[in-house]
Design a protein around this nucleic acid. Structure first.
Length: 587
RNA sequence: GGGGCCGUAGCUCAAUUGGUUAGAGUACCGGACUGUCGAUCCGGGGGUUGCGGGUUCAAGUCCCGUCGGCCUCGCCA
């Protein structure tokens, strides 16, 4: 070992001991005589003092040290007395150097890890090895490690087996775009990287491994977002001989364990559960941020009878008029601000954003004249409006009102500081529709995936009214992020066939795509259910980050590039020849 | 594929309406200093204003294109 202690470890108990530390130089303070160095490793920072009277040569060397040089220092731990530094955990002591060895000089770094003025992210990603030295990233990766360990312990205690599933798998055309890997041996054929271990874990259930989990890497070739990376990690689990309730309460337990350990937060179990339909009505979203209320209100009845043509016609054409009440915001948003909000709502398809300011003389708005006193009174009542409130309305097809108002709700929640950013709010959303109608292709799509079991009482609707069929599926929502998703699976091949029929997947096609699962389902498939949690997002929320890249050691940019390694890259023509691949980029 | 923001010294930023030799802090280099902890003080070097084109007497600034980063809609069974 090149060290006896770490830079975060020494306390007053160690005073008098001779120690050897190794680490990176943060900065030096050179007094010509005395020289100080702040030495950093993963565990902390310790101040080293070099005195020319002790060893002039060593002192000269110490004065030449620069940021990020790697050194080894042997010396005596001494008390700092009245010169202690309260900002450092080790601030009551320092190491009086006897020996200094420079293990490796550093080039002048383009930025100092841990600087308070963060350089732009492009530079930090290019020099990721420097940024990873910062406390900010080291803390995130520690939380990430701790969370993985707690998760493994949790499942282990409940008799789950961690089983690895293939990374080189088979492409299944539904769902996200696959990352493909060409086969050399099978010319012209490709493996696909898993979007999730979904089918394999179901097969494990059929094989009798009735409690499976895995911390699994998943790959989806879709566009990135602040909370989405092309490769990410799921806490994947599946159980046999269970129902929905068993999965929810299991995940409840895991969440409670993690929040208790990592945030010292007690959560009341069971976590609240809400039906998809109710969430869409109240918040316009299936993943509302429930740290604040701000519920949507339907004023369809008033809209229908008022003289405002936009509202009236929307109702007549089967649309809806819904709104929300920004409490006390009337004076916080100027006309220009509201124009900005209108444009914002427009990004979600809303053709306009109606608003009323609530004054002591009643509702003020460019459109107020179209509403009778009675209507205005009713709006006030329905919206729970008080003087100083600002009411917003969107009139459109239901889906547009939901999307626009949900986005507006999130924006207002943030801008009006309706919640404590440190709070963590979890809930389940259940009873998702099994299918959604794809207008473009004139067919039904699986809302979740084609293996979700319908709610028992809705089974007859599969024939009569498929859009009304609810699935035994569930999402865990944390602060407005979808954190987990799962379902009870179909284990009956007849039900599975019915669903494939609805999805317009022919028997041949089903056989072609999922044949190995269908085959397995015919050989004694137990009822089973499961879920998968987004580990990266979970760490992100627990760390209070709003960016998933800060909890991934080597993340990709929005164009899915790794600026550190330069991936993706062109490859040697020989490699392509082996794979029988020709590049054809249209100009 | 669409919308928005951004790109000036190694880094973080500034630069009036388009107008003199593009500045400051920090980092870097040299010097002074024996208790600093964002050390201090003195001095110095450092620029293809992302890249390419255009408008203009004159472009960091305006226009077009392009590259890259971020946010977002679509997409993400």
């Amino acid at each position: 070992m090149l060290r006896t202690q770490t830079c975060g470890e020494l306390r007053t108990d160690h005073v008098g001991q001779s120690v050897t530390l190794a680490g990176w130089v943060i900065r030096g303070r050179d007094h010509g005589g005395l020289a100080f160095i702040d030495l950093r490793d993963r565990y902390g920072i310790t101040q080293i003092v070099f005195n020319p009277d002790r060893d002039a040569k060593m002192h000269e060397l110490a004065r030449s040290l620069r940021a990020e040089d790697v050194i080894q220092v042997t010396g005596e731990v001494v008390l700092r007395d009245d010169r202690e530094n309260e900002k450092l955990a080790t601030g009551k002591i320092e190491v009086r150097a006897h020996e200094l060895k420079v293990l490796n000089k550093s080039k002048t770094p383009p930025f100092e890890p841990g600087t308070s003025e963060l350089p732009n992210e492009e530079l930090r990603l290019t020099y990721r090895f420097l940024d990873l030295r910062s406390e900010r990233l080291q803390e995130a990766l520690k939380v990430r490690h701790r969370l993985s360990k707690l998760t493994r312990d949790f499942f282990d205690q409940q008799e789950f087996l961690e089983i690895e599933t293939p990374i080189l798998g088979r492409s299944t055309p539904e769902g996200a775009r696959d990352y493909l890997v060409p086969s050399r041996v099978h010319e012209g054929s490709f493996y696909a990287l898993p979007q999730s271990p979904q089918i394999y874990k179901q097969i494990l259930m059929i094989s009798g491994y009735d409690r499976y989990y895995q911390i699994a890497r998943c790959f989806r070739d879709e566009d990135l977002r602040a909370d989405r990376q092309p490769e990410f990690t799921q806490i994947d689990l599946e159980m046999a001989f269970v129902d929905q309730e068993d999965i929810l309460s299991l995940v409840d337990g895991l969440i409670a364990t993690l929040l208790k350990d990592l945030r010292n937060k007690e959560v009341k179990l069971p976590l609240p559960r809400y039906a998809y339909h109710d969430m869409m009505e109240k918040y316009g979203s299936d993943k509302p941020d429930l740290r604040f209320a701000l519920e949507l209100v339907d004023i369809g009845e008033i809209a229908q009878s008022c003289d405002f043509a936009v509202f009236k016609k929307t109702i007549e054409s089967g649309g809806r008029v819904r709104g929300l009440n920004a409490k006390g915001a009337a004076n916080k948003y100027s006309r220009k601000d509201i124009d900005g909000l209108t444009e914002f709502a427009g990004e979600y398809g809303a053709k306009g954003l109606a608003f009323f300011k609530v004054t002591d003389e009643g509702l003020h708005s460019p459109i107020a004249k179209f509403f009778s006193d009675e209507d205005k009174q009713k709006i006030m009542e329905d919206m729970g409006a008080e003087v100083g409130d600002l009411l917003f309305f969107v009139a459109d097809q239901c889906a547009v009102t939901s999307a626009a108002l949900a986005a507006l709700r999130n924006r207002l929640g943030k801008e009006l500081e309706l919640y404590d950013p440190d709070e963590i709010n979890c809930c389940w959303v259940t009873h998702f529709p099994l299918l959604s109608y794809n207008e473009e292709d004139q067919r039904w799509d699986a809302e979740h995936h084609p293996f979700c079991q319908p709610v028992e009482e809705d089974l007859p609707l599969l024939q009569s009214d498929p859009g009304k069929v609810r699935a035994q599926s569930y999402d865990l929502i944390m602060n407005g992020h979808e954190l987990a998703s799962g379902s009870v699976r179909v284990h009956d091949q007849n039900v599975q066939q019915t669903i494939f029929d609805l999805l317009d997947i022919s028997a041949e096609e089903a056989e072609e795509r999922f044949g190995f699962l269908l085959q397995a389902l015919r050989y004694g498939a137990p009822p089973h259910a499961g879920a998968a949690l987004g580990l990266d997002r979970l760490v992100m929320i627990l760390c209070g980050n709003d960016n998933i890249r800060d909890v991934v050691a080597f993340p990709k940019t929005q164009k899915a590039a790794d600026l550190l390694s330069g991936a993706p890259s062109e490859v040697d023509p020989h490699q392509l020849r082996d794979l029988r691949i020709k590049i054809d980029i249209p100009q």
